[in-house]
Design a protein around this nucleic acid. Structure first.
Length: 293
DNA sequence: CGTGTTTGACCCGCGC
DNA sequence: GCGCGGGTCAAACACG
């Protein structure tokens, strides 16, 4: 799981340390750049009222983003079945070497390669040895939702499910259906609060969203609504929302030692207690400063 | 028939 | 070295 070549960023813990030890290190790192690390290149549309998500194909994670987008969140794509609120956390565990996602896509991983239909003569071992698992930047968030697999504009194919220790809920593994896209996501429910879905994205999308057959990708939500009241649960998380959340988190964390708890007027959303050291993925993705008010 | 899900087996890293 | 746990593979299956 770790990258032996990069001990500092080799594991998730260190990754979290990196961003949690000095919160400012993480948060002061423009959240837009964090999102851009995931290929979520956010651009404000000058000709439109809304913003457009632009996804540069496999762009290097150094693209800059207009800071203006941080003030206006995009309405969310999803007509989710129920209200969903999200708390985001990001991790910047970047691989030190060959962090080009396209490199992984060209490897044996993924359904893309048709050249090597895994002959019996070629043990997986060799392939595994040839290419170690590369850890992509990850971005995790919690969403209060009834549905596990929240729509985010992309199509995902489930490729695995595992029972997670210390959690009564299984963790599902999804891969972007785009054959060239190496983005993966993990979805699991919080053992603390089953109504909370923890989603972790890994990698960068090399393509655009597929849109939504029902309702479109940019429904008519007033972005300022949840910009000023992040309690208002957007139907579906999207990069703008994550970004806004990151800023919200930053503000709340810096202004108060409290967890970014939020409660909707109807009392729907409440961040689960995440103080416990082990919560499966939750413990994995939540910065310690957030866990320890 | 194409696409997506299920699920057991396998691989790999890590801690002891 | 061994066991554990997370992550992935891939065949079988389901569904429209």
């Amino acid at each position: 799981m770790t990258d032996p070549e990069d001990p500092d960023l080799s594991n998730e813990d260190s990754a979290w340390r990196q961003l949690t030890a000095p919160d400012s290190v993480f948060f002061n790192r423009d959240t837009s750049s964090i999102l851009s690390d995931f290929g979520w290149d956010l651009h404000a549309s000058s000709s439109d009222n809304h913003h457009n998500l632009r996804f540069d194909p496999c762009l290097p994670p150094t693209s800059t983003v207009p800071s203006s987008v941080t003030t206006t969140a995009t309405p969310d794509p999803i007509p989710a079945s129920s209200h969903s609120s999200t708390v985001a956390a990001a991790t910047a565990s970047v691989v030190s070497t060959s962090n080009n996602p396209s490199a992984t896509s060209s490897s044996s991983e993924g359904p893309t390669d048709n050249s090597t239909p895994k002959t019996p003569e070629t043990p997986k071992k060799e392939k595994k040895q040839a290419q170690k698992r590369i850890r992509q930047p990850r971005f995790a968030f919690m969403t209060k939702s009834d549905v596990d697999n929240l729509e985010d504009g992309y199509r995902w194919r489930k490729y695995g499910q595992k029972a997670v220790k210390n959690s009564s809920f299984p963790r599902s593994y999804y891969r972007c259906t785009n054959s060239r896209c190496t983005v993966k996501k993990r979805v699991e429910r919080s053992s603390e609060d089953p109504s909370i879905v923890i989603t972790t994205y890994e990698g960068q999308h090399c393509h655009q969203t597929v849109g939504f057959p029902r309702g479109g990708i940019f429904p008519a939500h007033d972005p300022h609504n949840f910009t000023s009241h992040h309690h208002l649960p957007p139907p579906l998380p999207n990069p703008y929302y994550y970004q806004e959340l990151l800023h919200q988190l930053h503000r709340e964390i810096t202004s108060s030692p409290q967890l970014p708890q939020s409660t909707t007027d109807d009392g729907h959303f409440a961040v689960p207690s995440i103080n416990q050291p082990e919560e499966g993925l939750l413990g994995d993705i939540v910065p310690q400063t957030m866990r320890n008010p």
